[in-house]
Amino acid sequence: MSDCGDSDAGWIFYKDRPDWNDIKPVPEDDGITPVVVIAHSEKFEDVYDYFRAILQKDEKSQRALELTKDAVELNSANYTVWQYRRELLKELGTDLRSELDYVESVIKISPKNYQVWHHRRVLVEWLQDPSQELDLTAEALLHDPKNYHAWQHRQWAIKSFRLYDKEIEFVDSLLSDDVRNNSAWNQRYFVHNNHTGWSDMNVQREICYTLEKIKFVKNNESAWNYLRGILLHDKRGINGNGVVTAFCEELYKNRCRSPFLLAFIIDVCEEAIKKNETNGFHNVERAKELCTALATKYDKIREKYWMYLRDRFEMYVCVNGENSQ
């Protein structure tokens, strides 16, 4: 735990500041038992006692704005501090550009915090200027490519201000760094779904792109999920795209037994059965065989799921049997 009392030698407690001596500090009152102040949180107590005091007084001043900075530094997750800070910014007519720089510096220290990102968004909305948001989020994603807050902010900025143009390039670079980055795959879908659209040409191009990535790393849950996602937009469905089914059978023939490959072939079988398009590769028997292989050998931890699926295929046999009578 960091000892915030000692971290900055020049620190002066609010209770010792002459320009604050008109304020009576307000300790935390949760009505349960008296608060015991101990040495290592003295700075924290001091700042928040004064923060409660200005909140209670509803004081809108420059010193209050400075105080919220200290309060944020001690706990950037405190939503009331941020909310009060925004009220101060409005009331005092503070330069919002410098506030953008400030919140950027806080984001760099606390990139996984709802309040900082929300503050950023409100500022961008007030300024109607999204010009720094792609760089800011790219920087955050450089440090943590799956940071949910950064992705949400990025999607919001892109959607609100139509910043789609270079997003596929950005996604490409992330997937080149880590082809298993599920957030990047999700972003890829986001761009196509909201911007590029699902023309047949685009769907086929995305399929080729994804198959290339799977060829590179076969046991990649995200890429297989994405493949299913784009096939939702292929009129021929999950079993009707010859490029995809040939690719899968080729992998299988070359002894790839990734659970995701086998699971995908099972889905192809299921759709073929439902559409009455079964063939030598895609039929009830193959599906059952793959379910058994997954349950007993390649994905034992999910044995119960695969056995459930196998039973479901048994039922297809029964139903078909009844139909033929």
């Binding site: 949760d30 608060v35 290592h40 949180s41 924290f44 107590e45 405190n78």
Partner: peptide, 10 residues
């Protein structure tokens, strides 16, 4: 209440 965490989690 003398836990640092207690103050931090108000």
């Amino acid at each position: 209440k003398d836990d640092f965490e207690y103050c931090m989690t108000e």
